[in-house]
C-alpha cells in the first residue's frame, strides 16, 4: 500500500434503498434508505439491537432482504466474482477457529480472495500482529482478535471497508491507532463504514453519520451538521449540595445529577452557568464543558421513548 490507489468514486458508493428485513414478528430493518460516500469515514450508529449488523449482513449477501436493495458500487455483494477484492468486511458475528494461527487464519482465505501468502504477512504487519503471526488464535485477547479481523478485511486491498464494532475490546491505545488507521484508509479514497453503538467512540474518527434506531433511519448527515444541532452541556460541581439544588431550581435547568454535588446541565453555556453560580454565591469546584453533548443528542435521537 505504498502506492496510493486510484479509485473511481462510483465504485465505492454504498447504496441502501427501502431495505426491509423481518425476523418472525420483529422488523429488524424497516424501509431503510441511505448512501455512504467514498473517501470518507462514515459512522453507522444506533443502540444495540437497532439493526446495524442485520443491515451489514444484508449488504454482504449473508441474509436475504424481504424488500429493497443494498448495493456496493452499484452491484450486490454476492454478484461479484471476487467480492473480497472490492469490499473488505468484518462482522461481529464472525470469528476464528481457535486452533489456527493468525497467519493460517488469513492463509485459509487467501486463495479465495486471490492473494498470495506474502500478502497475509503484509496485512498482519499493518495491524501490528507480526510477532503473534504464528500463535494460535485461541490465546488471543479481544483486541488482538479485532486486529486480526481487520487484517482479514485488508487482504484483497479493497476499495470499500465495512467494519462492525471494530473498536470493541480495543484498549485506549488501540482505539487511537484504529482511528488513525481508518482516517488513513479514507484519505486514500476508500469508503469506510464503521458501526458502533456509542457515538463518542467514533466521534473523533467519522466525517458522516448514519443513525438508525429500531431498524429505521433516524439521521444521515455529516458529523458537522449533527454537532451544530447538539446543544452545549456543562458539568458543575459544588461542595454545597443544597445551594446547588436551589440554583438549579431557580434557574429552571434540565440536569443529569451525577451525584448530589455534581450535575450536568443541558442547553447552557459555561458562561451562563458561571455567572448565575457567582450571583448565587455558590462555591464552584468544577465548571467544565461536558463533552457528552453530542452523545446526549445521539441518545435522544435513538431513544425517543426512553422515559416510558
Amino acid at each position: 500500500m505504498t502506492d496510493v490507489p486510484v479509485y473511481r468514486p462510483a465504485e465505492g458508493e454504498i447504496r441502501v434503498e427501502g431495505l426491509t428485513k423481518h425476523f418472525k414478528t420483529v422488523r429488524a430493518v424497516d424501509d431503510l434508505t441511505f448512501t455512504v460516500a467514498p473517501g470518507r469515514v462514515t459512522g453507522f450508529l444506533g443502540p444495540n439491537g437497532a439493526g446495524k449488523t442485520t443491515t451489514l449482513r444484508l449488504l454482504l449477501g449473508l441474509a436475504t432482504p424481504d424488500a429493497g436493495t443494498a448495493t456496493i458500487g452499484g452491484i450486490a455483494y454476492d454478484r461479484r466474482p471476487r467480492p473480497a477484492h472490492h469490499v473488505g468486511a468484518a462482522l461481529e458475528s464472525a470469528s476464528v477457529h481457535p486452533g489456527r494461527t493468525a497467519r493460517d487464519h488469513l492463509r485459509v482465505y487467501a486463495p479465495e480472495v486471490g492473494v498470495t501468502d506474502g500478502r497475509c504477512d503484509e496485512v498482519l504487519a499493518m495491524v501490528g500482529l507480526t510477532a503473534a503471526a504464528n500463535r494460535r488464535v485461541g490465546g488471543f485477547s479481544m483486541g488482538m482478535r479485532q486486529r486480526l479481523a481487520l487484517a482479514a478485511t485488508l487482504l484483497g486491498d479493497p476499495q470499500v471497508l465495512l467494519l462492525d464494532e471494530p473498536a470493541n475490546g480495543l484498549d485506549p491505545e488501540g482505539i487511537v491507532w484504529l482511528r488513525q488507521f481508518l482516517r488513513y484508509l479514507a484519505e486514500q479514497g476508500r469508503t469506510v463504514l464503521v458501526s458502533s453503538h456509542v457515538l463518542s467512540e467514533v466521534e473523533q474518527t467519522v466525517d458522516d453519520v448514519v443513525i438508525i434506531a429500531s431498524g429505521r433511519l433516524v439521521r444521515a448527515c455529516s458529523l458537522r451538521d449533527l454537532e451544530a444541532q447538539a446543544r452545549p452541556a456543562v458539568r458543575l460541581r459544588s461542595p454545597d449540595a443544597p445551594g446547588l439544588a436551589r440554583l438549579i431550581e431557580q434557574a429552571g435547568w434540565t440536569v443529569d445529577a451525577e451525584s448530589p454535588t455534581t450535575v450536568v446541565i443541558h442547553d447552557q453555556s459555561q458562561e451562563t452557568v458561571g455567572r448565575l453560580a457567582f450571583h448565587h454565591g455558590l462555591e464552584v469546584h468544577d465548571l467544565s464543558a461536558a463533552g457528552t453533548s453530542l452523545e446526549s443528542l445521539f441518545l435522544e435521537l435513538t431513544h425517543p421513548g426512553a422515559q416510558s
Binding site: L62, P83, L91, S93, V96, Y109
Partner: peptide, 13 residues
C-alpha cells in the same frame, strides 16, 4: 467457530 461468515464473504456462491 463462526467461521462460516468469513467463508461466505470470501466465496458467496
Amino acid at each position: 467457530h463462526r467461521t462460516i461468515t468469513p467463508t461466505l464473504l470470501a466465496q458467496p456462491r
